[in-house]
Design a protein around this nucleic acid. Structure first.
Length: 941
RNA sequence: GCGAGCGUGGUGAAACUGGUAAACACAGCGGGCUUAAAACCCGUUGACCGCAAGGUCUUACGGGUUCGAGUCCCGUCGCUCGCACCA
């Protein structure tokens, strides 16, 4: 690791930016706005590389947009409610508030050390009553408009977190946070009616620039399915059983009905019969078993008969009612019609319990309706064996429609759309969150806390460790009913912390407002978020809640915004190599490096794995910053991989990036040491820098940050090297481009850029507050200058390759070279062919055109046509667009080479370089046959 | 099982709506400058062959469409992610 001798004073620049209030987002009516946001972070005490990557990306975008003249809103704050702080309070003593504040102070300091351009005035924290007051206010509004409801329902209970979880927060039957088992528990809980917005949430995905895989994840969660609700009446009962099905076309094959054991009618169906104890045992087993185990045993279908019968809505036949372990109480209606002939699950179940299987579809038109069934035939088919007239022969949607119509005529069912996503369960039996602003009164029920009494603040006098801490605060719990004034009890559940992160982006637009959550005109001005950057792990929870909440707040009249985020970028993981055992297929902690596999004893290879504490392959940002500085870390992170790709941490690559930074420090010094000495190369560097500036802006506009950094920190250095190698050293050119280069550099390594900027006479203040004047597009002349230079580089490269073989033939080292430029008829042919193909002509049809051209009218006609097929046709497609443009341009190869012949001679270490046109009087090499446009033949001697 | 995506050098990876691969970087190798090293600069690096100006092969595998396929279509294999008795 090399150590910089004169490091940039990064902290000094950060202080100056801060003092100047450079990144304060203020409104200028004459400027476009840009809202750049990173996902609301939980304030753990230490910043990790994932943060650094996330914010380096966002900061580069924010800084670029400022250069482009936008008003940029780029805030930072903390999702500071949540269980880690509460758990820390329990395990180490202390209070979540103090732990959170301590962690926030520490991580804020580390984030600031990176020099990100946040408007720190706008910093939010969820646990600030000035913020969570509005969670409570929204909640009371939602109670008024019916969006918030209290329901007694089976919910997911995580024992180790001792709280309930929303459906989205259960992953494979386990808690998303602690990975502990999740059990079903019936409780009275608060829900937000997210399904009310299902259709809009699905449709909205078409209007925003989310990555396709995120859209697909969201569609999965919303889970739209089209089908029908069908009512089966129950023999001897008034109630009906509603079932949901996507296959009404198989209704005639329904030979039984299956209910979830927790179905609301279940208990009453079996009450007082011999089936009651069996059901009760079955129900209790299902209700209390951890869902994880239930899923594990999923393929063991289990059911019990209720002793009751339902009546088929169309045929009036008796069908038995069963309870099944595979029916989910909260999906659809909690009941299914079972069609064993055309559903695999029902088929297995019917086989196991000896229930009849009735074919009602055939898979081929006109097939035998009586064909035996060896397995369920689940595809769409043609209806057969219908006990009612007018259905046989119908297929697919027509069959479904016909059945639904028959049901509607009898008022026994209707078409409907079912969604998998369920109401958002927002109650949590934990302390460190927003208190739900409700007072329970024996007479008035659940009464919302009046607006003037908000916020309901978290009390400090609580005891942690035994159940819900809020229940231990007498002063909190005991209140009078706001309606009738009698003694009542305060709600002790707090809100899911995803509530906080579902609208924080709106609060950032107007963070200090104490009269409203945010002023409508201000929020509408800044929203929506133009660029949102964060991890893929929030693709379904946070990003669904936030979209829902935005729509719900819009419907309260608070904004006009329907979608919170437009462009979403999910940055890739930060990985680092860790030991890997090929035979066992496992990645091991880094402590095993260099030793054999602890399980099988074989030698370990290495594999890149996500940085994690458990593997021990983490890298501390603090340490890297202290060794190399923030700029180097930022450069490395942006250059190592595209934002969306996973990146591998590499110490050697980091070191290489640091060398670039060290080298770049001296660039202005080097350039301003040039003299006022114009040369023909000045026009080239002018054109090149113009081109680079445009390329840079295009890359940044496309969020191709890696390419942008490559231009600003690598390509331009090479361009300058080439310029000086070709004899350029004009101070005026340096003065022209150093400021713009500094601006490009400032996007990723702002501290270095400030050093540059400060040393330029022509500039004042800060590069970070400047705007970049986009140079005029390249003129034709400039393009020609660039082409000519590229031509020389290509010719040189080719000449080097040829030389090795040529000298083998010469038997000695070459002392001179003759460049034979292709005779003009070849270029004429190439131009004609390019025009022909460009205008849509088919390559095979070019020969007739060629035969008509004046140049082919002589005795060389046959030779030229042969040349076309053998050499020119493949070549025409090998040229890239730039080369094609050069072929079509007025560039004279001979003139360009003549002008550069001295340079070429020096580069190749030759005494003399001659240039001749092939087939001319000067050409005595006899090699012009192999010369092509842009590719002269080289003859060494 | 369903859905989405992916498969390119020693390595990380580029390649726009099909235009004739491997840009750029890392690692390696050769050279320059140095007493020497570092830094820096220049060159070189998919494979095989070569009669000098090049040829042949190559984007997991097998087919197809096309003047032309990493890119489009069909099939096979492998990997990643998400969902999952979802009715």
């Amino acid at each position: 690791m090399s150590v910089e001798t004169t490091p940039v004073d990064e902290v000094g620049w950060q202080r100056q930016w801060d003092d100047a209030g450079l990144f304060h987002a203020d409104l200028h009516p004459d400027r476009p706005k840009f809202y750049c946001l990173e996902m609301y972070p939980y304030p753990s005490g230490k910043m990790h590389m994932g943060h650094v990557r996330n914010y380096s990306i966002g900061d580069a975008v924010a800084r670029f947009k400022r250069l482009m003249g936008f008003d940029v809103l780029y805030p930072m704050g903390f999702d500071s409610f949540g269980m880690p702080a509460e758990n820390a309070a329990i395990s180490e003593g202390g209070h979540p508030h103090d732990i959170t504040e301590r962690n926030m102070a520490s991580i804020t300091e580390q984030i600031k050390r990176m020099g990100f351009s946040y408007d720190w005035r706008r910093t939010l924290k969820s646990h600030d009553p000035r913020y969570y007051k509005w969670n409570q206010w929204f909640f009371t509004k939602f109670m008024e408009n019916g969006l918030a409801r209290r329901e007694f329902a089976p919910v997911n209970w995580c024992q180790s977190c001792s709280t309930v979880l929303a459906n989205e927060q259960v992953k494979a039957g386990r808690c998303w946070r602690c990975n502990g088992p999740v059990a079903q528990k019936e409780m009275s809980q608060w829900f937000l009616d997210l399904p009310a917005y299902c259709q809009e949430l699905e449709d909205g995905l078409d209007s925003i620039a989310f990555p396709e895989h995120v859209k697909s994840l969201q569609l999965d969660w919303l889970g739209r399915s089209e089908g029908a609700n069908i009512q089966f009446s129950i023999e001897g009962r008034e109630e009906t059983i509603d079932v949901f099905t996507t296959r009404p076309d198989t209704l005639f094959g329904a030979t039984f009905v299956t209910l979830a054991p927790e179905h609301p009618l279940a208990e009453s169906l079996v009450a007082g019969t011999e089936h009651e104890p069996v059901w009760r045992e079955f129900h209790d087993e299902m209700a209390t078993i951890a869902e994880f185990d239930r899923i594990k045993n999923m393929n063991k279908k289990k059911g019990i008969f209720s002793g009751r019968y339902a009546v088929h809505p169309l045929t009036e036949e008796r069908v038995p009612i069963w309870f099944g372990n595979f029916v989910i109480a909260t999906y659809g209606t909690g009941a299914v019609m079972a069609v064993p002939a055309h559903d695999e699950r029902d088929f297995d179940f019917a086989k196991k319990y000896g229930i009849p299987i009735q074919r009602v579809l055939v898979m081929k038109e006109g097939a035998d309706p009586a064909a035996p069934m060896s397995k369920a035939e689940i595809d769409l088919g043609w209806m057969v064996n219908s006990p009612v007239e007018g259905f046989d022969g119908l297929y697919g949607q027509a069959a479904k429609d016909a059945v639904c119509q028959a049901l509607e005529e009898r008022s026994r069912g209707h078409q409907t759309i079912n969604w998998k996503i369920r109401p958002w369960l927002v109650s949590r039996q934990r302390y460190w969150g927003t208190p739900i602003p409700v007072i329970h009164c024996d007479d008035c029920g659940a009464v919302p806390v009046p607006e003037e009494d908000l916020p309901v603040e978290l009390p400090r006098d609580v005891v942690f460790g035994h159940g819900n801490p809020l229940e231990t605060s007498e002063t909190f719990v005991n209140v009078d009913c706001p309606k009738c004034g009698k003694p009542a009890r305060r709600e002790t559940d707090t809100m899911d912390t995803f509530m906080d992160s579902s609208w924080y982006f709106l609060r950032y637009t107007d963070p200090l407002n104490d009269d409203q959550a945010f002023a409508k005109n201000i929020a509408d001005h800044w929203m929506q978020v133009d660029f949102y950057c964060g991890g893929i792990e929030h693709a379904q929870m946070h990003l669904i809640y936030a979209r829902f909440m935005t729509k719900a707040l819009r419907d309260l009249g608070l904004t006009d915004v329907a979608e919170p985020f437009n462009e979403l970028l999910c940055q890739g993981m930060v990985n680092k190599a860790a030991p890997f055992c090929q035979p066992c297929g496992i990645t091991l902690p880094t402590v095993h490096e260099g030793s054999p596999c602890p399980q099988c004893g074989s030698e370990l290879s290495s594999r890149s794995a996500k940085m994690s504490k458990s593997l021990g392959n983490t890298v501390s940002p603090e340490e890297m910053i202290s060794l190399y500085g923030a700029d180097t870390v930022r450069l490395f992170i942006l250059f190592a991989a595209n934002p969306t790709a996973g990146m591998d941490w590499s110490d050697t690559a980091l070191d290489a990036n640091h060398r670039v930074m060290v080298q770049m420090r001296s660039m202005p010094h080097q350039l301003t040491a040039w003299k006022v000495k114009p040369s023909p190369m000045d026009a080239w560097l002018d054109a090149r820098m113009t081109q680079r500036t445009h390329e840079f802006c295009t890359a940044m506009d496309e969020y191709d940050l890696r390419r942008a950094v490559e231009i600003s920190h690598y390509d331009i250095i090479k361009d300058i090297n080439w310029y000086t190698r070709r004899g350029g050293e004009n101070l005026e050119v340096a003065h022209r481009w150093l400021p713009i280069w500094a601006q490009m550099v400032s996007v990723s390594t702002p501290h270095l850029a400030e050093e540059w900027w400060a040393n330029l006479d022509s500039t004042s203040t800060f590069v970070s507050g400047s705007t970049l004047p986009l140079p005029a597009p390249l003129t034709d002349e400039q393009n020609l200058v660039l082409s000519a230079e590229q031509y020389i580089r290509d010719v040189l490269e080719q000449a080097r390759k040829v030389r090795v073989v040529a000298e083998r033939h010469l038997g000695t080292s070459a002392s001179q070279a003759t460049f034979v430029v292709a005779p003009s008829w070849k270029r004429t042919m190439a131009r004609a062919a390019l025009t022909f193909i460009h205008d849509g002509g088919h390559p095979k049809k070019f020969i007739p055109i060629l035969q008509e051209m004046p140049m082919t009218q002589g005795e060389r006609k046959g030779e030229m046509i042969g040349f076309w097929g053998k050499k020119m046709l493949p070549q025409v497609f090998k040229w890239d667009d730039a080369s094609k443009a050069v072929v079509a341009s007025t560039m004279e190869e001979q003139a360009v080479l003549d002008a550069a012949s001295a340079f070429i001679a020096v580069e190749l270490g030759l005494e003399a370089v001659m240039v001749v046109v092939g087939e001319s009087d000067h050409d005595d090499t006899g090699r012009s046959g192999s010369a092509m446009p842009l590719s002269p033949a080289v003859v060494y001697s």
